[in-house]
Write a protein that binds this DNA or RNA. Structure first.
Lengths: 118, 118
DNA sequence: TCATTAGTTGAATATTTATTCAATTATATT
DNA sequence: AATATAATTGAATAAATATTCAACTAATGA
């Protein structure tokens, strides 16, 4: 979508600030990726999985038992996290062991918890 | 839901790890709030709004113009962010000026961008 | 080889949610 | 008082997504 076609239905009130902000703004793709990343943390089940994997490497059944949810549901979510490179896995025998594949998750949780506790 | 009623459809493979993890796990409410918080950042429109407000205080029309979106859409999202105490506003004349009301947003964006850039 | 178990996957369902549209409130101006 | 503009709001629509269910693969062991 070109900047020339305006969808916006209202006037610019502070032209300078608007222009300056548009100029500095990261591109669409950056925001999309950023939002996609935060969306991954923005689900209770995935948040629990990531927290658990930050404690220990675990197989799918372990995680399902920790969260008291079905294996299939956990596996679907692990697939999502895997495809987004937030977790990685290794297969050993019949079991698949998952670990965190992102150094930032712990820091993000800490900042999130700070917000929650005012 | 009590811990005694098991939904999980698979056996515990590493009992010790599972028990230890359950014992350490924050309560349901903490995860819900944490996920809700990240969900707020996990939308392209809201991510842009927050980034913009981190640059300047702005009124609704300014933000709508920066994002090239309708005033109503922006106002809905600002309402969501306001009710979650991530932004605050002050009214001056006909305009309503919004600012960030959370010190962690900048830090979160930085960590998020680090993830995106491998 | 057969049975069992861990894990994955696709389709269906149910829920959540972002945007639009229309109506409304509040402030400023003539 | 009448008009115009900034912003909010509720309802409707459309899109995204979490979980369930059933079928499937791969590895183990009897």
């Amino acid at each position: 979508m070109s900047r020339n076609e305006f969808i916006c239905d209202c006037n610019v009130i502070h032209q300078e600030i608007v222009d300056k902000t548009i100029k500095k703004m990261p591109d669409e793709n950056t925001f999309n990726k950023l939002a996609e990343f935060f969306k991954l943390l923005g689900d209770t089940t995935r948040a629990k999985i990531l927290w658990a994997l930050d404690q220990n490497e675990m197989c799918v059944c372990d995680i399902a038992n920790v969260l008291n949810m079905s294996k299939s549901s956990i596996s679907h979510q692990l697939g999502t996290l895997r495809r987004s490179n937030i977790v990685k896995c290794r297969k050993q025998g019949k079991e698949v062991y998952y670990t965190l594949d992102d150094d930032h998750v712990k820091g993000l949780f800490e900042l999130g918890l700070e917000h929650i506790n005012h």
